[in-house]
Amino acid sequence: MRLSTVILPIYRWNDEGRSHWQRAEELGFHTAYTYDHLAWRSFRDGPWFGAVPTLTAAAAATSRMRLGTLVTSPNFRHPVTLAKELISLDDISDGRITLGVGAGGNGFDATTLRGPGQEWTPRERADHFGEFVPLLDRLLRSPASVTHEGERYSAHEARNLPGCVQRPRLPFAVAATGPRGMKLAAGYGQAWVTTGDPKIFETGTPADSVEAIRGQVGKLGAACEAIDRNPDELDKILLTGFTPDRQRPLESVDAFVEFAANHKALGITEIVIHWPIPDSEFAADEKVFERIATEALAQL
């Protein structure tokens, strides 16, 4: 099992930003991700920086740790411009970028560009996602020229030379729970991402969550089998903080080891924990967080 972290883009780079990313590498995290949003929930009225510039700076400040988004969505991204930014990131990082990508939601990302009441429906989000991922795949795999005329996206002789450092392209970690998203994960993903089942976040138990994720893993397996792909080829990533136990796994090394072991048994291969943010939903003891980073995996 791998252990990664997500560092929200809320820090001025020359104050705390650089030091957090460098410390994440020192602690041995496999990947450090950041959110790719225009704003997010309770952090909307505070500092919030762009994911791509943040990852560019992180790539220059680190040398070994992988970096990525968790997750990018079609809500305010276009495949053509995103592909150009991704090949640039992959080059600057010398092939250390993973793109976490999902269908998005109906929060600030959905309303900032289109206005309140103009959000895409769940079906419309799935429709955009279903065209977004295959086109992005083509743009990154075929850097010389891509032309596409779809229902939602167009590209005319789009060029992304010299292409990705990682071949045939940088890896996609596809966030999905529904059948259409699972098909995209099976068809295009090198990894699959879950946050658990949002329907039981408020009222469910940790045991309920484990069973829900077990079911999701099963659906991913079925989607892979439908296209004759071995589901073991995909990493299975759990972004924590959104299951009924919330931040309890970060209360102690033992609590985290128990949590991780329960999910390792389901087939989860990577667990992502939030960098502690005081006085927020991601508050945690920094000393315990660092002990989890350096000690927990040896007990699994």
Rank of each mutant, 00 (worst) to 15 (best):
L70D: 04
L70P: 02
V71G: 06
V71D: 07
V71P: 02
V71L: 09
S73E: 04
P74M: 07
P74F: 11
P74D: 12
P74L: 08
P74I: 13
P79I: 03
V80G: 05
L82M: 13
E85A: 15
L86Q: 01
L86K: 03
L86A: 13
I87N: 05
I87P: 00
S88H: 07
S88Y: 09
L89T: 05
D90A: 06
D91V: 07
I92G: 13
I92S: 09
S93W: 05
D94H: 13
D94Y: 07
T98N: 07
L99W: 07
L99M: 14
G100W: 00
V101Q: 08
G102L: 01
G105C: 04
N106C: 01
N106F: 02
G107D: 08
D109L: 08
A110H: 02
T111L: 07
T111S: 10
T112I: 11
L113I: 14
R114W: 15
G115T: 06
G117I: 12
G117D: 01
G117H: 03
Q118C: 10
E119C: 09
E119N: 12
W120T: 00
W120P: 00
P122Q: 11
E124I: 08
A126T: 15
A126N: 10
D127I: 06
D127K: 01
D127W: 01
H128N: 12
F129P: 01
F129L: 03
E131S: 07
E131I: 03
F132P: 01
V133I: 13
V133S: 00
L135M: 02
L135G: 00
D137A: 10
L139A: 08
L139E: 04
S142W: 06
V146S: 04
H148T: 11
H148D: 10
E149Q: 14
E149H: 15
G150H: 11
E151H: 10
E151N: 13
E151A: 13
E151K: 15
E151R: 15
R152M: 11
Y153R: 10
Y153I: 11
S154D: 14
A155D: 15
E157W: 04
A158S: 14
R159F: 01
N160R: 01
N160C: 12
L161G: 07
G163A: 04
V165Y: 06
V165L: 01
Q166K: 12
P168M: 12
P168V: 09
R169G: 02
R169H: 10
R169T: 12
L170S: 06
L170H: 01
L170W: 00
V174P: 06
V174Y: 02
